[in-house]
Amino acid sequence: MKLNFSENHKLLFSVVFFGFIALSILIAIIPAIEVNSNDPMCGVNTLTPAEFRGLNTYVSEGCLYCHTQQVRPLQLDKVFGRPSSPLDYSYLTPLDQIRMTPAVLGSERTGPDLSNIGNRQPSEIWHHIHLYNPRSVVKSSIMQAYPWLYEIKENPDSNDLVIPVPDEYAPKNGKVVATQKAKDLVAYLLFLKQKPIEGISQIEESTSKNLSGSDAGAQLFNTNCASCHQQNGEGISKTFPPLKNSATVNSDNPDKHIRTVLFGLKGEAINGIVYPAEMPPQKDNLTNEQIAEIINYERSSWGNNGKKITADDVRKIRAEGK
């Protein structure tokens, strides 16, 4: 037989077929095996059964088509946390006998990255309100609403997790109650906390080096606080308290303000209203400098006029503890 590709079909198509297999082994299978077994966090980074069911819903509802879980080592990704490490994904295995390992890294960021959402937005209630209808907490969101993860009950009993959906979006009659599916999905979202990894600092020293003063404060506020208190500082009536004209924010003694941001707040009446959701603590999520920037931003925005503070004030209260 002649070694002539265009006249010898056996030769041509063997080279095409086996050559491609060889290339595929080199470029896909070997590197895949290499990262596949790279798994020392096993045991630390595993899902509870509820979180695992939540991951299932995350996949079947296709959340990953709009949300990435992949923080790149780039300045513009710093708002979402530290750069992702291979270890962050060590919990991922096939979903069941038929389905395969989910592709949570994603390829499009129509919505924000969720690698660290459990730290950035730790409030369970907020997640439920948001899933029931995203526009009730983020006015210009275009995210899909998931009302079928909730039931409407006339008389919820004491075991039911009632979701305080703002009036404008709430059903006419009855209360919104989370189903098990909704609870599981939120459990998975809250699992998404970047775990400490040696060599990669958990909290970035300053979000953006090129931003200073109120710019940095505004950015930090918008990233970490605005989903509840809103960008205009007005909160959401009966669901999340306003910061505009708030006594705590305008008070000359900032201790209460700092303490609330650091350690969170729960069940306390503010201006006579007890809010159903709790304010999540930020102490593990933000540095003293960042918290000072946020607090100063809050104290000088929307007509507020509170005394400015420094990172040292935050440090002091952090040391005192709750």
């Binding site: 590197p31 095996i33 596949n36 991922l92 390992t101 592709a103």
Partner: peptide, 15 residues
Amino acid sequence: PWYQNALGETVIQGY
């Protein structure tokens, strides 16, 4: 599925 746990999946997905 054998080499597709964790980031193994990502490598195969790019391919």
